[in-house]
Design a protein around this nucleic acid. Structure first.
Lengths: 188, 188
DNA sequence: TCCTCATATGCAACTCGTTGCATAGCCAAG
DNA sequence: CTTGGCTATGCAACGAGTTGCATATGAGGA
């Protein structure tokens, strides 16, 4: 149930509405966690009724009202408790790897375009992460020195960068393998 | 719904029972997909009633009967169709990254043992993958030349190896960062 | 003898996550 | 003037995944 905790972290970094959270989950938090607005609204409601969050209705001019959530004492305590509990190291769930092994029972060369498309997506993500790193942490406009929260955000971002770089290199390996097999066995 | 397809791939590689599949999902297939026996039994039953799989009851001496599943024509067709459909590049779900950012609101040094434990798990996985690579693909007992299926299994395994190596390096970066913050801010 | 482990399958209840749809006002482009 | 996009929230239904428990047999150890 880490979505709850990811929301607590994000709201501690800055209070906001469900809609704003959903956008953060498409951006910085999205480097390591994804969530749709449906999930977020549902969990926010539960967390509020559990007393972890406070909600403040903000009537706005020219657009629908929004509800700004912020973390209460029990929310902070719940996060702290979770931080002290051990969690399971994650295991991967990689559809593309299933497809690659499945290619042994189909035409391997048919996968090449798909793998190229994935490579492009990861390459775009890498560029996006690197731009963010320059903007927030290593560029001339970045604060110096960084505070603890920023250092931790930076090390998480470095993880995202390392992940994308590793993935791109692996997809190149996959492409080379598929092309090699496609040449020697034009039709499997 | 890639569990279904992972099962098809695994049963095409070799027919087997639900129990055997569950063990494969703890081993080679588990490099990139996990599933419990509950999930597997449930999906096998559905796939059989959908006509994707054939089942053969094997009475055994000295132990409970087992049901051996194998892929039928429609199952192979379903896999082939899926292989030709584009899939979304996955996004990460990394609890540990949530914890690391959360450490800004708690004592960062409390996370060090947790990160060290994760590093150990990934290091063990890497050793396990490398042993498997030597046994099945690069060692003296490995078949030469490898057929297409084995080449594809190998490139997937290389992906697992690259992932673990990257993760270990990142966790070292995380540990260095946490230790640095722990020194300059003994209590956050 | 009893306990645990390994094989082998399964139900029931639950939470988590996704998808489609609905509402509602404003703005800008065509 | 209608279509689509952005802000902002939400319901309903479904599918995916987890956890706890139940059943059955035989082997080996305490």
């Amino acid at each position: 149930m880490a979505l709850e905790h990811a929301i607590l972290v994000s709201l501690l970094e800055k209070p906001g509405s469900g809609y704003e959270l959903a956008r953060r989950f498409d951006r910085s938090i999205g480097y390591f966690w994804t969530a749709t607005h449906q999930q977020i609204y549902r969990v926010l409601k539960r967390m509020e009724s559990d007393g972890l969050l406070a909600v403040r209705g903000l009537p706005q001019q020219d657009r629908p009202d929004k509800k700004e959530y912020s973390v209460m004492g029990p929310g902070r305590a719940a996060l702290s408790q979770w931080l002290h509990e051990p969690i399971e190291p994650e295991s991967i769930r990689h559809d593309l790897a299933v497809k690659i092994r499945g290619a042994a029972f189909d035409d391997p060369s048919a996968l090449i375009r798909e793998v190229e498309r994935h490579r492009q997506v990861h390459s775009d993500r890498l560029a996006h992460y690197l731009a963010g790193e320059l903007r927030d942490f290593t560029g001339p406009a970045a604060p110096t020195p960084l505070d603890a929260g920023q250092e931790l955000q930076h090390v998480v971002l470095r993880g995202g960068i390392a992940y994308e770089r590793m993935t791109i290199a692996w997809l190149d390996d996959v492409l080379a393998t598929l092309r090699r097999l496609g040449m020697s066995h034009p039709r499997a």
